[in-house]
């Protein structure tokens, strides 16, 4: 752990399986990570890498069945969210952990005004009166940069643009001053100029409020600009974890290296041809007994087929799950 401070959120060996008619899907396989107070942890991965399912599992938002959380420990302070009863979880969701989802249109209720949706957690969790909640809602809308806040409380979601709706979602997530904010691809559905606005807003809010944030995205550019630390997921596992500058300067896992090379850049020399990661992501029908990336990896050797690599430290706060990297480290030492 980088600092001595106690993590706000500490996840150990989380395992989630979906039971489907076609058999089991092992979506999250022994994922462990921690979140320090005030830190922004970026989670990168492709669709199906398990990044959203991990976050949904830890707060109990997945319907069970089909989901089945097979193991692990999710410590929020001294509560284990995985074994906590439903009432305790209800008290945590929206109060101690806030959520912002990808699509602000489908995550807001179209038949209620924006005001009533912001006030709902305030009245439920904070026991505020209607008048108090209204005042706080106005404050929140102003905080996220919505002009004419008092009037806009009476508007419905469809009367807002995409960027404005995402601001409303952020206001709702922040309503009860959460310790942790989980943002699942919050800017993916937005245009770049609107995305830039939201990123600025989040940077600003972090300075003001100082909560810890988990930011899920597939966009390496967004991560580079906003995160303190990055966790790379592939095939339902964490394959690499490092401070942001370290990850971009010295990526270790073959997947991270390839991923960074495969995206074209806006400045600098233009490549004549894009680097390609050949093949397809794995289908997770069983608990992995070998490296998930081996089929697409250029450094594959016998051990990769025999044994699923564990995460090992390769630098300060930097760890990686790869036999080849660990071998190379040993060879260099």
């Amino acid at each position: 752990m980088p600092d001595g401070a106690l993590p706000v959120l500490d996840v150990k060996d989380l395992k989630t399986v979906f039971r489907t008619r076609g058999g089991e899907v092992h979506a999250v396989n022994n994922v462990s990570f921690h979140l320090q107070p005030g830190e922004l942890l970026g989670v990168v991965g492709e669709s199906g890498s398990g990044k959203s399912v991990t976050m949904m599992s830890l707060i109990g938002l997945l319907p069970q069945p089909p989901a089945d959380i097979r193991g692990g420990q999710v410590m929020l302070g001294d509560i284990d969210l995985r074994t906590a009863p439903a009432e305790v979880l209800r008290g945590v969701r929206g109060k101690r952990i806030g959520f912002v989802f990808q699509d602000p249109m489908t995550s807001l209720n179209p038949v209620f005004t924006v005001g009533s949706q912001i006030m709902e957690p305030l009245r439920l969790h904070m026991g505020m009166t209607k008048a108090q909640a209204t005042e706080r809602a106005v404050e929140l809308l102003e905080l996220v940069g919505i002009p004419d806040a008092r009037k806009r409380l009476k508007s419905y979601p469809h009367q807002f643009s995409g960027g404005m709706r995402q601001r409303v979602m952020i206001a709702i997530a922040l309503a009860c001053d959460p310790e942790v904010l989980i943002a699942d691809e919050p800017t993916t559905a937005l245009d770049v100029t609107i995305q830039a606005q939201i990123l600025e807003l989040v940077k600003d809010l972090r300075k003001k409020l100082g909560m810890a944030i988990i930011w899920i995205t597939h966009d390496l550019g967004v991560i580079a600009g906003i995160a303190d630390r990055v966790m790379v997921m592939y095939g339902g596992q964490v394959v690499e974890q490092a401070p942001v500058k370290d990850l971009f300067a010295r990526p270790q896992h073959p997947y991270t290296r390839a991923l960074l090379k495969t995206v074209p850049h806006l400045t600098g020399a233009r490549q004549a041809r894009l680097q390609v990661i050949e093949g397809q992501p794995p289908i997770l029908t069983a608990h992995p007994t070998a490296c998930a990336f081996r089929a697409r990896c250029t450094h594959r050797f016998e051990r990769c087929d025999a044994e699923n690599p564990l995460r090992r430290p390769v630098g300060h706060g930097h760890d990686v799950a790869c036999h080849w990297v660990v071998n190379a480290e040993v060879a260099h030492a």
Binding site: T193, V222, A224, L266
Partner: peptide
């Protein structure tokens, strides 16, 4: 200028 670049130093 709004496009994020995958380079924390540039960002």
């Amino acid at each position: 200028s709004a496009v994020p670049e995958a380079d924390p130093n540039a960002e």
